[in-house]
Write a protein that binds this DNA or RNA. Structure first.
Length: 230
DNA sequence: CAGCTGATTTCCT
DNA sequence: GGAAATCAGCTGG
């Protein structure tokens, strides 16, 4: 059962905890992967220093300023995708970052994507590096399939071609369904890895879920050494 | 287990 | 030129 667009036409902080336990599905030619959301974070757009929309509209974050119920997919750290669901009516930027989930359908496909993700076209590595596939059938492997925002995108096969996808449309390849079970016990705390507004407790997760990613505070890093001229 | 480092695009100063 | 809503591999205890 899909979720109505009205559900997303609220403040991200209200939407975020209500998304826990809902199911995100991505259907492609090779099959379907479904994930039950277990961890999310709210971003309040132009009112939130940690949001990509804080400085205004750009080519990358344009979808966040559009109508609610659409996916905002961005590429970061030069190698990872993350997916958000847009909240509030058109013209107002606000979104919920999907940080982690539990794969409940298409486990083999998700595991295959995770194992082969390192062979990316842009890098063109000739080295294999696929050995990590070991253990994907184990309990720990299942737990890690969509544990973290970039892993969740890998498991679901989400990339920027899905930026702007309407998750409220049952005919969309990327769509979301409501909870089937009881209301989960929700916990909250500071958001992960953000440098600004780090104390605001807008991260929400399901209590006791092993798929929830470990908390990690923002840590500044020295820039890469080397890169000497000629 | 904790801590550090490389990879590499997009945006901001 | 530098930082960022990250992850995997390696090191030391």
């Amino acid at each position: 059962m899909p979720i109505s667009r009205d559900f997303f036409a609220r403040h991200a902080v209200e939407v975020a905890p209500d998304l826990l336990g809902c199911v995100l599905e991505h259907e492609t030619a090779v099959g379907l992967v479904a994930v039950k959301l277990t961890e999310v974070e709210a971003y309040a757009g132009q009112a939130d220093p940690a949001s990509h929309a804080y400085r205004g509209k750009t080519a990358r974050n344009a979808v966040m300023f559009g109508p609610p119920g659409h996916a905002y997919v961005y590429f970061t750290y030069g190698m990872h995708f993350c997916v958000n669901l847009v909240c509030l009516p058109e013209g107002t930027a606000s979104a919920v970052l999907l940080r982690a989930g539990r794969v409940i359908e298409g486990t083999a496909l998700a595991a295959g994507r995770r194992a082969s993700t390192r062979n990316r076209p842009a890098a063109g590595r000739s080295s294999a590096g696929i050995g990590s596939a070991a253990g994907v059938g184990s309990a720990a492997g299942q737990r890690d399939l969509a544990r973290g925002p970039a892993r969740l995108c890998q498991a679901l096969g989400i990339d920027r071609s899905l930026d702007g996808a309407d998750v409220c449309d049952p005919g969309s390849p990327l769509r979301i369904g409501g909870r089937s079970g009881p209301v989960p016990a929700v916990r909250s705390g500071p958001r992960v890895g953000v440098s600004r507004a780090a104390a605001i407790p807008w991260r929400f997760w399901i209590a006791g879920e092993p798929t929830v990613s470990p908390y990690r505070a923002y840590a500044a890093r020295r820039r890469t050494a080397g890169s000497a001229p000629g």
